[in-house]
Simulated scan of single mutants.
Amino acid sequence: MTYLKAGSATLLVFSLFFSLKLQAMTDDKPYSLGIGSYALTISADDSGYEDDDFSGLLLNATYAFNDNVGARFNYYTLEHDDWSDLENDGFDILGYYGTGLLSEGFKAYIGGGVYRETWEVSGTDFDESFSGFQLNGGIGYHWPAVTIDLTLALRSTGDYEDFAEIDTSAIASALSIGFRF
Rank of each mutant, 00 (worst) to 15 (best):
N68R: 11
T62D: 11
K21V: 12
S43N: 10
E128K: 13
G105A: 02
A61L: 12
A71V: 14
D149V: 04
D89Y: 00
F17A: 15
G36Q: 06
F130M: 07
S43L: 03
I171C: 02
S8Y: 11
L33I: 15
Y38F: 15
W83P: 00
V69E: 04
L154I: 08
R180D: 03
T168K: 02
F54D: 06
T62E: 13
A108G: 15
F73P: 03
A39Q: 14
S19K: 02
F18P: 00
G100F: 07
T118Q: 14
Q23R: 07
I42Q: 00
D89P: 03
V121G: 00
F65H: 09
L16H: 13
F163K: 08
H80C: 06
L152H: 05
F54E: 03
T62G: 09
F65A: 12
G178A: 09
A174F: 07
V121C: 02
Y96P: 00
K107W: 07
S55M: 04
V121N: 00
A61F: 12
R155Y: 02
L40G: 04
L20H: 10
G70I: 05
T26Q: 11
L11T: 06
D28G: 11
L150P: 01
D127A: 01
E87C: 01
G90D: 08
D125I: 04
A108P: 03
L101A: 06
L175V: 14
L86G: 00
